[in-house]
Amino acid sequence: MYDLISRYLVWIAFAVFVFGMAYQFINLVIQAKRDKVIFPYMTWKHSFRSLLHWIVPFASKNMRIRYETTIVTFFFHLCVVLVPIFLTAHVVMFSFAWGPSWSSLSASVTEWITILVLLALVFFLLRRLMLPEVRFVTYPSDYVLLAVAAAPFVTGFIARHQWFDYETMVLIHMIAGAIMLMAIPFTRLSHMLFFPFTRAYMGSEFGAVRNARDW
């Protein structure tokens, strides 16, 4: 079982992720051509200008108004990408299988980052439950997505501490990671792919067409 999952599931997950993202991207381009009013108005300058103001913390007004969400969300998004790549166990597994290796985060750093990622997810959950404007637009699927994002971190954390049966936990962890990867292209987690494009379009609409700022 372990062998099967560690050998094949990872490949399936990465394949679904990569091809899913490629499919969504190609579809985006085709649909954007059909929309007719997208490409003629887009400019590199205004796209990047807008992106810059929305990937630098506090560079837009709303990020300053909702500073607590800004801090948590920046930390969360950074770590959710970096931890899986720079976790020692992941790096070791990779170099064991293929050779190449890269520097990894120390165990205690990863440990703390994981805890903070989980706290960030709790923050998102509380936001959903407590802020009326967020709860009003929350569907059950929003909780599922939070769970999908939380699962690899929770299970990884448990496995590292060897709290239950270690091998089972690692299996669950691998499955959870695979589910998250495969979910990205086909759920609202696809904002990972779409964010730069929606932002770039709105930046161009505001900047190039309407001569105004969008941050």
Binding site: L28, Q31, V134, V137, Y139, T198
Partner: peptide
């Protein structure tokens, strides 16, 4: 086309 589809898929509520 793209705008509706992408906006619907991107909005994280």
């Amino acid at each position: 086309a793209a705008r509706l589809k992408v906006y619907m898929n991107t909005c994280v509520h």
